[in-house]
């Protein structure tokens, strides 16, 4: 495992009494692609701004390579940021934008020229040196913003929803390119997004946040398959979240029926959240399952169909490559592996 480059210890942040971050503990390893994921207002951008030095934590410590950097201003930090709306300097050309940081470091003009040309080639915009910023498309501006940050060879690159303004196709291309660049350059990326697909496809580690707290830290696969609570399950991918009761170890009751499951260690008859992914519910004939209902709606989603089946007072969301027309009576089969039992998240 690589050594830790950034370490946030008990970091909290208040804005005039409003709590933006609550006791965040997070470490980031060298060369890791970490994504801070959550809905707007969850504190992901604040966390990024604290690492960048644009905000100071109200309490707690921020370490960079083991050195406390709480009070270090942004211009002294070895991190660079790709801002949400790119924040390119409109009065400067593409070359001047990218060379901005190098010129401040008083680097030799020839070296600057060389580095700018290299980084422009890397983001596939060779020959754009003299262009004005406002003559570029959104995707090109986005690449310039990345180039402007990368040319400084930061140890950590912070990216604040950098692809938010791009259309789907371009966004997917840029996701691929960013991931590629990160692996090639061996730079630590801290990436903020609210897009769970983006997080799943790019990250080594995902940090799911909500209301200023970290909900779960893990690999994309862990987070998808083993969400720690109903919020994570719902935010990462789609889920059926049902009230249930843990009857005993390996047996859970929901929708009026007992189901075998793989979870244990709950109290007897403890109320729990039961999470089932829409693709984990199989549609079978009525005879094959005690859980029966009627197909209410069918929507074609491209790769799959989405069916809503009403059964035992619950609207089940089901994703399947096959479909039954609305009005059909069906049975729903859920294997023990597909049932995720979670402790109730009590309201704070």
């Amino acid at each position: 495992m690589q050594e830790i480059i950034i370490d946030l210890v008990n970091v909290s942040k208040n804005y005039n009494g409003t709590e933006a971050l609550n006791n965040i503990n997070l470490y980031i390893r060298k060369n890791e692609f970490v994504t801070l994921l959550g809905p707007s207002g969850c504190g992901k951008t604040t966390t990024l701004r604290i690492i960048g030095g644009f905000e100071k934590p109200s309490s707690g410590e921020v370490y960079f390579n083991g050195v406390k950097i709480n009070d270090l201003p942004p211009y002294k930090r070895k991190v660079n940021t790709v801002f949400q709306k790119y924040a390119l300097f409109p009065h400067l050309s593409v070359f001047e934008n990218i060379a901005f940081g190098l010129k401040i470091k008083k680097m030799d003009k020839k070296i600057i020229d060389k580095k700018v040309r290299e980084v422009l080639a890397m983001v596939n915009l060779a020959g754009y040196e003299k262009r004005k910023i406002d003559s570029l498309s959104g995707g090109q501006q986005q690449r310039i913003a990345i180039a402007r940050a990368l040319v400084n060879e930061p140890e950590v690159l912070l990216l604040d929803e950098p692809l938010g303004a791009l259309d789907l196709k371009l966004r997917q291309e840029m996701q691929f390119e960013l991931k590629n660049m990160q692996q090639r350059l061996g730079i630590t990326f801290v990436y903020v997004t609210h897009d769970q697909e983006e997080a799943l496809s790019m990250s080594d580690t995902i940090v799911v946040m909500k209301d200023g707290r970290i909900q779960q830290i893990g690999t994309p696969i862990d987070i998808y398959n083993e969400p720690k609570n109903a919020f994570v399950a719902d935010f990462i991918g789609e889920s059926n979240i049902i009230n249930g009761t843990m009857v005993q170890d390996y047996l859970v009751n929901f929708a009026g029926l007992d189901f075998e499951c793989v979870d244990s260690g709950f109290g007897q008859n403890e109320p729990v959240d039961v999470v089932i992914r829409p693709e984990d519910i199989q549609v079978v004939s009525e005879a094959e399952s005690p859980l029966r209902g009627e197909v209410k709606t069918v929507t074609f989603k491209g790769v799959h169909y989405e069916m809503i089946v009403q059964s035992n007072g619950i609207h089940w969301k089901i994703h399947s490559t096959g479909m039954e027309p609305a009005g059909t009576r069906v049975g729903l089969k859920i294997v023990p592996d597909a049932i995720h039992v979670m402790r109730r998240v009590t309201a704070k």
């Binding site: 942004p74 211009y75 940021t81 801002f83 949400q84 709306k85 924040a87 401040i104 400084n152």
Partner: peptide, 23 residues
């Protein structure tokens, strides 16, 4: 002036005086 431009300059290593002079 977009505040993020000032932050971007700081991010790229500019101190207060340089931010004023260059941005």
């Amino acid at each position: 002036i977009d505040k993020s431009l000032i932050e971007a300059a700081e991010d790229l290593g500019a101190n207060g005086i340089t931010v004023f002079r260059k941005v």
